[in-house]
Design a binder for these strands. Structure first.
Lengths: 334, 334
DNA sequence: ACTTAAAATCGAAACGTTTCGATAGGGAGC
DNA sequence: GCTCCCTATCGAAACGTTTCGATTTTAAGT
């Protein structure tokens, strides 16, 4: 019933092994033969049997994709979009993505089956992943790529958004709009992304010969929520240090800033300009629409897969950090 | 390096085929032998090779899951959650879910690879799927299960939320709160879910001996957006027919109702009570928090997989509609 | 204890590929 | 025309299971 490589070989008048060479794009086949086989494959509508391939070769043709249930199912489709980019890119390379979620706290019952069955050529981890699982993973010599997260210890390959550059773009933009007194509303500085954004903020100020004033930097909040953004902004206002713009460490905090400014009847952007970071879905639906920094999420996912395929084929692991460029989206708040 | 069924057989002192029987839970093995083999499997930490299994048997151990890119990546994680339920359930049955997205308009280039390679035992389609793809699918004799969608023609098996019952619950709740004059704000009646909700509305009124007044039924909008909800509510108010409650066909429209009522300084729930449908993420964050009807999305996904596994093992296709129960979530708007 | 049927266990082929050592074919150099 | 080599092609083993017919064991009936 199903069409096998034998059918192709017979119809094309060659041996099975020659067809195999063609399928796998290997050298050592005359161009004429190759064309003939390709034509036959097309005519018969032949598709190699994934399982048979996986059995015979050591390659699995699958890439694992792990994220936490929380990250996957929350309303802001950040990791969902990253996955989407991965899936699309994987198709180009004829890989399947095996998506699985794990709980935020590690449990041995939770170990993805594709790991137990050694059913993948590599694994992509998106977002923060429980340390226990990372430890478990490191026991295999499987290629691992992190997206938007760097494990605290050990060597790794991570794909991250360029937070520093994003902050620089944001602050530079404010400066070009004439702002000199720019506040930073942050929190949880220990989080690498937030730290990087603060770093970019300072660096942009220096580049523009604006002195960095510690009075304008607010990082005492323990998280980066709308509530914290609200509170930090109130502190900023109470303190009376003059300022004309705010760079918030992420959009959630920026929404908090908006709320506080609105309550005090301070108009955005006339009296205070505001920039966020992340470009979450509702950023463009606020009043005023929020100027913010965006990363192409699909690109991050695609880059992870592309890199993974490279690693699998070259059989050499890579290490380090890939910084994906970000882009300033100018809207009404500046 | 990797542990195979042979290693298990050797260590347990039995033949490979006996081990195979045990792995597959087949009869014809002494309990003593079974226990011994099970123990050995555990000791060696053996896991059957997915590919080899797939090759030797005709079963693939994979279930395809298709939804449109649009449905997957929008902010309201409805289908994402359904997928999550499917994935969790699939683990219990030792199936992998192969997730892929397709564009909303069909293109031959877009046919999921797992279909071309015949790499799945069945396929689950969530949400509206392009007709071209459905036609293509029907050419195989693959089990197909639809979630939250029924294809317009042909026999099918669909898992749907119980819209009629949800509407009855909503209206009955309003009635219990003392409301007799309840308006229906809908739109796009041709959409099966919306039609069913209207039907449930009418049916609940009749059950409670409240006359159905066509003056209180608004279905002329062409879609079911917040904007339409807003406009319909304005019409309702202009018309002057007295009413004390609104049942909106979905949460988006309910938000539109809220906006209109707020503009006219009509207080919710004091002057007008409001019920929505769907329980989208932000329903619980509105002011006032919206009373609405919720379906357990994970359950829908899990049910689809459970049913699929049944079909695969029994080798008999099922047809019809499975209605998943819904639940009224009472919040501040009533 | 001996026969016999049923139950348990075994052995080998088959699934559709890849891979690698073997073979055939065709020029170049003499 | 005859070697020699290199390249293109081939054949068969191997991958880790399942499946089914064959064989052995067990237990029941005498």
């Amino acid at each position: 019933m199903t069409i096998t490589i034998k059918d192709v070989a017979r119809k094309a008048g060659v041996s099975v092994s020659t067809v195999s060479l063609v399928i796998n794009n290997k050298p050592g086949v005359t161009d004429a033969t190759r064309q003939k086989i390709l034509k036959t494959i097309d005519e018969l509508n032949y598709h190699p049997h994934h399982f048979a391939r996986g059995l015979a070769s050591k390659r699995k043709g699958n890439i694992g994709f792990i994220l936490t249930t929380y990250h996957f199912s929350r309303a802001e489709p950040f990791y969902t979009r990253i996955f989407l980019g991965s899936e699309l890119e994987a198709r180009n390379h004829n890989y399947y993505i095996l998506l699985t979620t794990v709980e935020s706290k590690f449990s041995r019952k939770d170990i993805p089956r594709f790991l137990l069955e050694k059913n993948i050529d590599g694994v992509i981890l998106a977002g923060k992943i429980p340390a226990g699982l990372i430890d478990y993973l490191n026991r295999f010599d499987l290629p691992v790529i992190y997206i938007d997260y760097v494990p605290p210890k050990g060597k790794s390959l991570a794909i991250l958004m360029d937070n520093v550059d994003g902050a620089i773009q944001a602050v530079t933009h404010l400066n070009e709009k004439g702002h000199k007194k720019i506040a930073f509303i942050g929190g949880d500085i220990s989080h690498p992304s937030i730290g990087a954004r603060l770093e970019g903020y300072k660096s942009a100020l220096k580049k523009n010969r604006i002195p960095v004033s510690e009075n304008l930097i607010f990082t005492s909040a323990s998280d980066t929520t709308t509530q914290s953004g609200y509170e930090m902004t109130c502190h900023l206002l109470e303190q009376k240090t003059p300022f004309t713009a705010i760079f918030a460490a992420n959009d959630a905090m920026a929404f908090g800033c908006m709320k506080c400014l609105r309550e005090k009847h301070i108009r955005i952007p006339d009296q205070v300009a505001l920039v966020g970071f992340d470009d979450v879905e509702i950023a463009s639906q606020m009043e005023p629409k929020l100027t913010t920094v965006r990363v192409n999420k699909e690109d991050m996912g695609a880059l992870a897969v592309k890199t993974m395929v490279d690693i699998i084929h070259s059989e050499r692991m890579l290490q380090g950090k890939f910084l994906v460029p970000v882009e300033l989206v100018v809207r009404e708040s500046t």
